[in-house]
């Protein structure tokens, strides 16, 4: 796996990216993913009330916030698992309201859900095949796509015949990420991929994300409790509290702001 090394100027982290502004090659560039006045919740009062957010193409945005801040709720709404009570979700400017979960995937919006999302009864190989299904027509094309993932995540290659429930937590998270990447998403939503993983594994996974963003223009929205690691690869950080954006700034600025860190991130 490659390190999160060189980065093109257009995606370099810096202080000029706050305020939710769309980054990229000049005026009129559409956000890859945009949320406008999103209202969503469960029974009772909404958990997220009027969230507005934009993610520029090819950028990595960290979605931060304490437990219960609403990160998972936002991601599940973006992927279509939850239906918003108000507001809009736009992918490349298209309203996704009428697009079902399985069709959002076909449009390039892929979510890696919270926790162990590996299908435990299927093998590693089968999990990857499943991820490649709709994208790569034909057995040979799928074989190539799966083998690329084995090259990227070597531990998975050694365990290709193991059932999902036989994998370690880190291997499962690698598999979940590989299975999402194999469908070549344009926008990837990740819900706490670092949960329970060794720092070295977290660094590896995040390095892959950064590399994909730089090399292929993948757009990443990364919900994380692991603030330091997330900000180290992110261009921008958005801090949620009680379903509202309380801070939105360049990743370096956010990491360096002691008041902000103390108030919302608890370190």
């Amino acid at each position: 796996m490659s390190a999160p090394a060189a980065r093109s100027a257009s995606t370099a982290r810096g202080g000029d990216t706050g305020g939710g502004a769309v980054r990229g090659g000049g005026a009129g560039t559409a956000a890859a993913l945009a949320v406008e006045g999103l209202v969503v919740g469960y029974a009772g009062a909404p958990v997220v009330d009027g969230l507005t957010l934009e993610v520029a193409p090819g950028s990595v945005v960290a979605l931060l916030g304490a437990n219960g801040a609403g990160k998972t709720t936002v991601l599940r709404t973006l992927s279509g698992l939850l239906t918003p009570r108000g507001g809009r979700v736009l992918l490349d400017g298209d309203d996704l309201a009428a697009v079902r979960v399985e069709d959002r995937v076909r449009r390039g919006l892929v979510q890696v859900p919270e926790g162990r999302s590996v299908v435990t009864e299927l093998t590693v190989e089968e999990n990857l095949q499943l991820g490649a299904l709709w994208r790569s027509a034909g057995r040979a094309a799928r074989r190539t796509a799966v083998d690329e993932m084995y090259d990227l995540f070597e531990p998975l290659a050694r365990r290709r015949a193991s059932a999902g429930h036989q994998l370690s937590g880190g291997e499962r998270q690698m598999l979940a990420l590989a299975r999402a990447l194999i469908s070549r998403p344009r926008v990837l939503l990740l819900d706490e991929p670092s949960l329970g993983l060794a720092p070295r594994v977290v660094a590896q996974l995040f390095a892959v994300l950064r590399e994909r963003a730089d090399a292929t223009g993948l757009t990443v929205l990364l919900a994380e409790q692991n603030v330091t690691s997330a900000l180290s690869i992110a261009d921008r950080g958005v801090v949620l509290a009680l379903g509202e954006v309380v801070a939105d700034a360049g990743a370096a600025d956010l990491a360096a702001d002691p008041a902000l860190r103390h108030a919302y991130l608890g370190f």
């Binding site: 979960v101 399985e102 892929v110 999302s117 089968e126 499943l130 299904l133 469908s183």
Partner: peptide, 24 residues
Amino acid sequence: STLGLQLRAAAVAPEVSRLLGVRV
């Protein structure tokens, strides 16, 4: 078969399957 793979996945993990594009 790929249909069988989708049938099995949809049966044990419907939500994850939908997130992978399977028409559950």
